[in-house]
């Protein structure tokens, strides 16, 4: 499922975009913001695959410190409050775009997100992911896991993301419960 954060101040535009987004079965959660206020706080716990943001909201937060909070592979679509010139970038949606044009642009973006995921479509944990999960459940930090398994912290983080997506469990204690239930670690292993 693709999760979307929609930051748009106009009620009418929000309604229209939600209507179009809901036509795609792969779109899951849609979080909505009506201004730049609170965007940083939302991104602390909501990791969108797609951010659709009005250019006025981007302009209202010139330091854009929330941009660093976006997940690495998050795609961006900008809503532009004017018409677009010929050959404008495909990640720009104009408020004057027709439904067909909007649907096409959004569809392309969603496909790109999907293509990224296809490499790892299965919902089963790989042996490698099980090994990482075992370490996580034992309370190890990403750094410790990386050192133990001779891999980079970046690789550990990417494995953990996949584990969380496949199992739909985010917290370490939730992952620990899963690991015990599935015999990946023993109850006695945790203090």
């Amino acid at each position: 499922m693709v999760s979307v954060l929609l930051a748009e101040q106009s009620y009418l535009l929000r309604k229209g975009l939600i209507h179009i987004l809901r036509q795609f079965p792969e779109v899951g959660e849609i979080e909505i913001l009506g201004s730049q206020l609170g965007i940083g706080e939302v991104l602390q716990h909501f990791e969108p695959d797609l951010l659709i943001v009005n250019s006025a909201i981007t302009a209202a937060s010139p330091d854009k410190n929330w941009e660093s909070l976006l997940p690495e592979d998050c795609r961006l679509l900008h809503i532009i409050n004017t018409g677009l010139p010929q050959g404008a970038p495909e990640n720009q949606l104009s408020i004057y775009d027709s439904k067909v044009a909007l649907t096409e642009k959004i569809s392309k973006t969603l496909k790109a997100i999907g293509a990224n995921r296809d490499q790892d479509e299965s919902e089963e944990l790989t042996p490698r992911e099980k090994l990482i999960l075992q370490h996580v459940a034992l309370g190890k930090t990403n750094k410790e896991i990386a050192a133990d398994l001779f891999i980079s912290t970046h690789t550990v983080i990417s494995h953990r993301k996949n584990i969380t997506r496949k199992l739909d469990i985010k917290s370490v204690s939730g992952l620990t419960v899963y690991a015990i239930l599935n015999g990946i670690i023993n109850m006695e292993d945790i203090s």
């Binding site: 739909d168 469990i169 917290s171």
Partner: peptide, 15 residues
């Protein structure tokens, strides 16, 4: 809410 939804996932999907 994170842990509440984790608990929901465990009960619904993994037990």
């Amino acid at each position: 809410e994170e842990k509440v939804f984790d608990l929901q996932s465990i009960l619904l999907r993994h037990l």
